[in-house]
Design a protein around this nucleic acid. Structure first.
Lengths: 266, 266
DNA sequence: GTATAAAATTGACATTTATCAATTATGGCT
DNA sequence: AGCCATAATTGATAAATGTCAATTTTATAC
């Protein structure tokens, strides 16, 4: 049941609004969790039976709030969300954006409470995976346990990359890396990596990258002047990926690595 | 076997150089992994049998290098290490410091290669836990699987806290939060949270916090002028924890939460 | 114990990015 | 379709932190 029917035109690489996109199961991060070759049909049904589908969230609705008790992890099916934590001074820190096929809630296992909130950036639907059931099933199915550990490890790895960005990079390097990251993730989901729509505001981007909105806005302007991108609001076209890589301080290998990894698991 | 004999004077809260400290097993992050109440004697032996003790590392020796293949996770027994990733421009980004009882290598599970290197900051000994065996044993022992997931979740959570620090906080807030974090971790291991020795250089601290060495040095000076700490090189005494909390932008609850969590698991 | 290298500190200055303020554009709603 | 709140852009200025350079202190090696 997870492998939602996907219109054929969605499978082709084309500009697509996440709002309308259903992720192909083959691209879904749960692919290895729910459809690994090593799991046979009846085991698959077991997994399928523990997954609950929630009714779609509207824009700005919360999937979970800060401090709410942790019961399930979630997988984005369509749309997108941001996760954010409150800071003492009443602000918020955006900790991540979540596209179809990506998991939410892994940071809550330890304490049993969600340290961040998750809010839909657009109309969004998710699969809910009750954690107790997932743990139980992982106990039976070694490949499922393995995949779960891998996905959590990937999360740790990705967070460390972001730490590097926040700690060491200039504003233009941060924005460039951000756009390339989004581009790659679209590509991995079978959509165009050259032309896409951002579902988050400039404010959210700035917050995520540890910059002021104004700085992000200026960087968008500069990138256009320099012919790196075309941007009209949320509609982005990557014009010169190679230069953007250099600005982001990425060597080609980074991109390759990520791409390779994604084929393996996510 | 993991519960290494600890001199009684080490169990008391006193100033201690990590160099000489062996973590008490009760404080060890592997406590729940290797000695959970729900695991009986024979199961415990199974776990014990898969753990290998490595000969101590000397200062500046590597536990693993960037890109080396991932086979085991490691737990610090005594001493301390830093983990760091190379950046394109030949610099490095310090991604973490690891005190006795803390795990290393969780970020490598996903790709099967270590994305960062681990280097001893002083004479350091570690337990090596072959990952395949750990996975296999987790398959048998639900509590072990659960604990492993919890520890990975905690790592994700901690990384997100650091992201917040790097993205939103001033230099003084970063250093203050850093010192409080170290202080708390000493406390959790049964050592003084007021007076301790840092095993890392100012350079490493600056790198970790995304600051210039000079800035860190100036902040140390300012903290002393303001009576927040006494610092002579690596020897630190916390004089005014409450003010430091405020500067770090932490509400009291943060500290509590961390402390509570640590009792539960780490 | 002395020489040498490495680490830490301090000051002067440059640069980046944040902040404040004003304007324009956009999207949601009736 | 038009109004209003929100989001985005742009400019001017200020503040924080980085960079460069010099000095002092500490650690390491012979």
């Amino acid at each position: 049941m997870l492998q939602k029917t996907v219109p054929t035109n969605m499978r082709n690489k084309k500009v697509v609004d996440l709002h309308a996109a259903k992720v192909a199961c083959k691209e879904c991060s749960l692919h290895q969790l729910c459809l690994p070759r090593s799991i046979n049909g009846s085991d698959l049904e077991k997994l399928d039976s523990i997954i609950e589908r929630k009714k779609p969230l509207k824009r700005n609705e919360h999937l979970f709030q800060v401090g709410s008790s942790f019961n399930s992890i979630y997988v984005v099916r369509s749309g997108s969300l941001k996760t954010y934590s409150p800071t003492v001074d009443g602000q918020e820190q955006v900790t991540g954006f979540h596209l179809p096929g990506e998991l939410l809630g892994l940071d809550a296992i330890g304490k049993g409470r969600h340290p961040c909130a998750a809010k839909a950036l657009e109309t969004t639907s998710v699969c809910e995976v009750p954690f107790e059931h997932l743990e139980g099933l992982s106990q039976e199915l070694p490949t499922l346990q393995h995949q779960l550990l891998r996905l959590m490890s990937k999360e740790i790895f990705d967070d460390q990359e972001l730490m590097l960005l926040l700690g060491k990079k200039t504003a233009e390097a941060r924005l460039s890396a951000f756009l390339l990251s989004i581009s790659l993730r679209f590509k991995q989901r079978g959509f165009s990596s050259v032309e896409f729509y951002l579902s988050m505001s400039r404010n959210d981007i700035a917050n995520y990258l540890g910059l002021a909105v104004e700085t992000v806005s200026r960087m968008f302007t500069r990138f256009q002047e320099d012919g790196l991108i075309e941007a009209e609001r949320k509609h982005i076209i990557i014009k010169n990926r190679e230069n953007m890589r250099q600005i982001a301080g990425m060597n080609e290998c980074c991109d390759e690595t990520s791409a390779r990894d994604s084929q393996q698991s996510i």
